[in-house]
Amino acid sequence: MTSPWTLYLLAAAALLFTGIYALLTMRNLIKLFIGVEVVSKAVSLVIIATGYAKKSILVAQGLAITFIVVEVSLVATALAIIINLYRHTKSLDIRRLSKLKG
């Protein structure tokens, strides 16, 4: 017997796994950040699905909107950092950032 909530939680777990896999294995900075985005999709899915299952969708919606605002702010800052790093190292390869030098 699977309830819709269980299904949503399983889907969110699959998304979380995909995002963390990308964070662990990818080398391109933008790809890594796409992994972070996938993780954040899992989080907002869990928030809304739990609100829906536990009959408090309005509060969940408020939380999801707060989360989306945080996400946008995070994306803007992180992409600015990525552009700065690119101008510094002329590459998007994460392995070239392993040396903390100049």
Binding site: N28, I30, I34, V72, I83, Y86, L92
Partner: peptide
């Protein structure tokens, strides 16, 4: 966010091809 991603990809075009494993 997609627009921001596109902008970043366009700005980092020349060195962007990193070999993934």
């Amino acid at each position: 966010i997609t627009v921001l991603f596109m902008l970043t990809i366009a700005l980092t075009k020349t060195g962007g091809d990193v070999a993934e494993s």
